[in-house]
C-alpha cells in the first residue's frame, strides 16, 4: 500500500516532495481514476502520494505584467469563470468533462498528465504558455512544449512541484477552437484544434495552430507558422495547399477505443481548412 501525505503548507509539500518523491494529487480527476480499485479498497497508487488540494498558497490566478499567472492548484471551474482568462482557454475548459469534475480538476494536473488529448493543453500550446516548477532549492520555468516530452512523460524532476502556468497575454484578430469529443458533454476528446490569427495592414502578423490527439504530443510548428508571417491574401492562397500538406505530414494519429486514425487525420485536416478559411476572411 502506498504511503500518503497531507501537507499543511506549501513549504511542507516541497519538503515531502524532496524527501519522499511523493506524487502530488490535486483534484484527483485523473490519478484517483487511473489507480482506482474496487469499492471499499484503497486506490492502488504505485508510489507515495500527497494530497495538495487544501493548500491555499497554491490557488488563485492574476495578471502579472504581460502574463496571466494561474497557480497550480486553481480549479478548472475558477478558470472557466474568470474574466481575465483568454476566452478560447475559457471555452476549452468549459468543454472539458462536467461541472463536478471541473470543480476538482486543475490545469496543472492536466499538463502533468501529459495526455496528447488534453484539450486545454492544446490551447496552452497555441498561447505559448510556460510552466513554473519549484523545488526547495530552485525555481525554473519553461515552455509547455519543452515540459511535455511524450504521452504521460514530462521533465518534472523528483523534487519539483509545478507551481503555476504562465500564459502570455495574447490578442488576436480571430480565433478558432474545435474539440471533437466522444459525445456532446462529459467527453474525452478524439481530437482538438486551436488556431489564432493576427492581421495587421492586411498581412499576417502572427499565426498559430495547435492540434491535439494527432500524435504523441500536441502538434505545433513554429517553422510552418513563421513562414506565414507577412503574407497577404493572394500569397496565403497560393501557399495554402503546400502548407496544408506540410501540416498533414505532421498529423500522425492512432487508432484507439475512442476513434480511428483515419477519422482523426481527415477531420483534423478539415478543421485546418476551416481555420485557413478564417485566415483568408481576416486577410480580405
Amino acid at each position: 500500500m502506498a504511503v500518503s501525505y497531507v501537507p499543511a503548507t506549501f513549504e511542507e509539500a516541497v519538503r515531502i516532495r524532496r524527501e519522499t518523491g511523493a506524487v502530488p494529487v490535486a483534484g484527483g480527476t485523473d490519478l484517483m481514476v487511473r489507480y482506482r480499485s474496487p469499492a471499499g479498497t484503497l486506490p492502488d497508487f504505485p508510489w507515495p502520494v500527497m494530497f495538495i488540494s487544501g493548500l491555499k498558497e497554491m490557488k488563485g490566478l492574476f495578471l502579472e505584467g504581460v502574463e496571466l499567472v494561474i497557480k497550480a492548484g486553481t480549479e478548472l471551474a475558477v478558470i472557466e469563470h474568470s474574466e481575465i482568462v483568454h476566452p478560447v482557454l475559457r471555452e476549452a475548459v468549459r468543454q472539458m468533462a462536467a461541472p463536478a469534475l471541473r470543480n476538482l480538476g486543475t490545469l496543472s494536473g492536466n499538463i502533468c498528465n501529459a495526455s496528447p488529448a488534453g484539450d486545454a493543453v492544446c490551447v496552452l500550446y497555441a498561447l505559448g504558455a510556460e510552466v513554473e516548477l519549484t523545488s526547495s532549492s530552485r525555481m525554473r520555468r519553461m515552455p509547455i512544449e519543452h515540459f511535455i516530452t511524450g504521452p504521460g512523460r514530462t521533465v518534472l524532476k523528483g523534487d519539483e512541484l509545478m507551481t503555476a502556468v504562465r500564459i502570455p497575454l495574447h490578442s488576436e484578430s480571430a480565433s478558432f477552437y474545435r474539440k471533437v469529443g466522444t459525445r456532446k458533454a462529459n467527453a474525452l476528446s478524439k481530437l482538438s484544434c486551436t488556431g489564432f490569427i493576427t492581421v495587421t495592414e492586411n498581412r499576417i502578423a502572427d499565426m498559430r495552430l495547435a492540434l491535439g490527439a494527432v500524435g504523441p504530443v500536441v502538434v505545433r510548428s513554429a517553422e510552418l507558422e513563421s513562414q506565414c508571417i507577412g503574407m497577404d491574401l493572394n500569397h496565403f492562397r497560393n501557399y495554402k495547399p503546400d502548407l496544408r500538406k506540410q501540416f498533414a505530414e505532421r498529423v500522425k494519429p492512432i487508432d484507439d477505443q475512442r476513434s480511428t486514425a483515419e477519422y482523426r487525420k481527415e477531420t483534423t485536416l478539415n478543421l485546418i481548412d476551416e481555420f485557413f478559411m478564417l485566415i483568408e476572411k481576416e486577410l480580405s
Partner: peptide
C-alpha cells in the same frame, strides 16, 4: 449513434463509462 462496443481478442474494448459512451443530457 454512440454506443460502440468492440471486441478485441475476446475482451470488450470500451470497458469504462469514459469509453462506453451513453447519452448525457446534452446529446
Amino acid at each position: 449513434s454512440l454506443e460502440k462496443l468492440e471486441v478485441k481478442n475476446g475482451a470488450f474494448l470500451q470497458n469504462t463509462f469514459a469509453d462506453y459512451i451513453i447519452p448525457t443530457t446534452m446529446d
